[in-house]
């Protein structure tokens, strides 16, 4: 079903997660290199939520065909640059098809100078990802999920949102549990 290159990227991504070695470089976008987009499946999501190392998390679900998602994306890039040093990670999960990643998703991320980790949905069906993130979520995008430092969901918002809304929710996520000392 997946190409060899895609499976290799999935394997490398999984290995990086297992050993906990960050392979995303904030300089990646700035240097113009094509951003890496890893497949995200059930196991990858659980690892993302459990291996928090005391950092809160913002997870945005988007697609290249979704105009409000594309419009709000710069706000996520700003959120990432403002909050990365404050103990919060921002990651994005594209629900575009795997064969659209190289042609559409990666060029978009490069244009956005997006330095945060980027994933593409690799759950077997859309409802698997929807239910894994939040059973009450309808699947409407964009949708942005805020987790505290333990990986517990604090809140989520559906629809295009401003940086101020993201900051308010991010602050809540950071305040929910104290930073690890």
């Amino acid at each position: 079903m997946f190409s060899f290159a895609y499976r290799m990227r999935a394997f490398c991504g999984l290995m990086a997660l297992v050993v906990g070695a960050p392979s995303f470089s904030p300089a990646q976008a700035a240097t113009g290199r094509s951003p890496e987009v890893r497949p995200l499946d059930e196991r990858g999501l659980q690892e993302l939520l459990t291996i928090r190392k005391g950092r809160a998390l913002v997870l945005n679900v988007w697609a290249i065909w979704c105009l409000p998602c594309v419009e709000e994306f710069p706000e996520l890039v700003r959120l990432d640059s403002l909050y990365r040093s404050r103990g919060l990670d921002v990651v994005t999960v594209s629900i575009d098809f795997e064969d659209e990643v190289d042609e559409k998703v990666r060029p978009f991320l490069r244009r956005m100078r997006a330095a945060m980790p980027a994933y593409v949905n690799a759950f077997p069906t859309p409802s698997d990802l929807i239910n894994a993130l939040q059973a009450e979520w309808s699947g409407a995008i964009p949708a942005t999920f805020f987790y505290d430092r333990t990986g517990t969901l604090v809140t989520y918002v559906v629809g295009k949102r401003s940086l101020e809304v993201f900051q308010e929710a991010a602050d809540k996520a950071l305040q929910r549990t104290p930073a690890r000392r």
Binding site: A63, C66, P68, I95, P126, S127, I130, N131, S138, G139, A140, I141, P142, V158, G159
Partner: peptide, 9 residues
């Protein structure tokens, strides 16, 4: 009941 991705109303 089923779910899927779609555009926000």
């Amino acid at each position: 009941t089923t779910k899927s991705f779609g555009c926000t109303i």
